[in-house]
Amino acid sequence: MPISRNFKAFFSSGFGMATYEPSFYVEACEEAPEMLANDTTGNYRAFRDEFAAHIRDSSFAPPSEGDTQWMTNEWLRNIWYDAFGPEPPPGDPFAVPQEHWGHRRLTDYMVYAVNETPEFSSPGAPAWLEARGLTFADVNAAVELSATQSVGFRSAPEGWLEHLKQLTDRGLREPQPGELPAG
């Protein structure tokens, strides 16, 4: 699925700006429940549905050279969690095990908005954590995981390029550099 104008509008409304304007990223995540609740036009729901489709179909192209489709999908899964919570996007073939979030796996929201105490964290952090069944202590412990421990970095699974090729052949996505030739 090509990226729609509606998706682009919402995505660039904070979610895609974590490294440039983290406060916007944090705001965009914190306001997501309210946006869904007050979505009279259905545009926000359409955005969320398309978000899930891009994860399912690997159809959000890597934003810059050197990023792979797998890394891009993993980044999108983190944004999904930050915005919409622990329920994985519908149809995700490589959903993150729920118990990893905030323990073995950290997201940009956790890095930016959750610090040692509420005083040094985003005002919205307590509610955000509660909605996900996490505590400040959980996230801080995950940040401090020692170098010797195996942590939740996920490499692309076995047969990944073949999986992408099938999606490409079905016309669900555009092929990206370094992938298997079409056909």
Partner: peptide, 10 residues
């Protein structure tokens, strides 16, 4: 772009 798991290790 990938996840931040193990920020300390990284």
């Amino acid at each position: 772009m990938a996840d931040n798991a193990g920020t300390a290790m990284r």
